[in-house]
Nucleic acid binder design. Structure first.
Lengths: 142, 142
DNA sequence: TTGGGTGCAAACTATTTGCATTCGA
DNA sequence: TCGAATGCAAATAGTTTGCACCCAA
């Protein structure tokens, strides 16, 4: 069950399984993105991808993240007005957002339940349920 | 208990109570903002304020909303990557976000409870708990 | 050969900021 | 009078887009 870092072949399969043509750049991006379970912004991912030498342009990062999101490979998390985070774990789960550091992380809550939500208005389909705890370091400046 | 539209005198008091010097522009903004319980973006509010004739500049809208937020008069809601919403009702409560229309609204859920959240990491203070249901109109384009 | 994919730069949008002007106590 | 508030325009940052080029089927 330990999800090891996927190799190139697995990534190719994964992209194909989601109707995405596996190009070189997309594989490089996927490799950095799915190296571990993480929450990254486009800019952070760009840095990870081009760590050693520039291989992918900024526009392609954005295009690819949008494509991956559309195809269900990653999930957008909107918590910071300055940037969009992409979560490599797409199942719905609660998040912790450090407003000071601008860092997003998971909350381990296997037994989480939300009780008392009314039914959706007619004609509406639920796309997601976001639960975010905003925190601040106590020792941090006021 | 019915919260009527506050008049100018009440608004002056309210601003003063929050350590805000009541200037003309701030009162005009507060008047539009607190005319009803609502969720507005800076741009929408600018439109409401300057409905009849331009009285307040865009920069002042932003400055004032930031000030109001700092002083606890309104609450920022981050759900849309394109804009920040300001909620005139500052108590924590769940929201419904129509991703298609970009509209934010309240969810009536007086008995809402979230069960199973683990304790916060050490040194962290909770700033807020955001619960947002993202919905899409079924009849809307796929 | 040909339709995507990619890269670059320019465009765009929401928001912030610097600075000169004006207002209000 | 004097500090704070305002307005304008420029700056900023994240994201998107137009278009020429390139590659793989």
């Amino acid at each position: 069950m330990a999800s090891a870092v996927p190799d190139r072949t697995q990534l190719v399969e994964q992209l194909r399984a989601h109707d995405i043509i596996p190009t070189h750049q997309r594989l490089v991006i996927a490799q950095a993105l799915f190296a571990r379970r993480q929450h990254v912004s486009a800019d952070q991912l760009l840095g990870q991808v081009n760590l050693t030498h520039a291989e992918v342009s900024k526009a392609t990062i954005y295009n690819t993240l949008n494509l991956f999101e559309e195809k269900g490979l990653v999930r957008r998390i909107i918590v910071d007005p300055e940037r969009i985070f992409y979560d490599t774990f797409v199942d719905s789960h609660p998040h912790l957002f450090d407003v000071e550091a601008g860092e997003l992380s998971d909350i381990e809550a296997p037994d989480l339940r939300v009780v008392g939500l009314p039914p959706l208005p007619h004609g509406m389909r639920q796309e997601g349920l976001d639960i975010v705890i905003r925190v601040r370091n106590i020792s941090a400046s006021v």
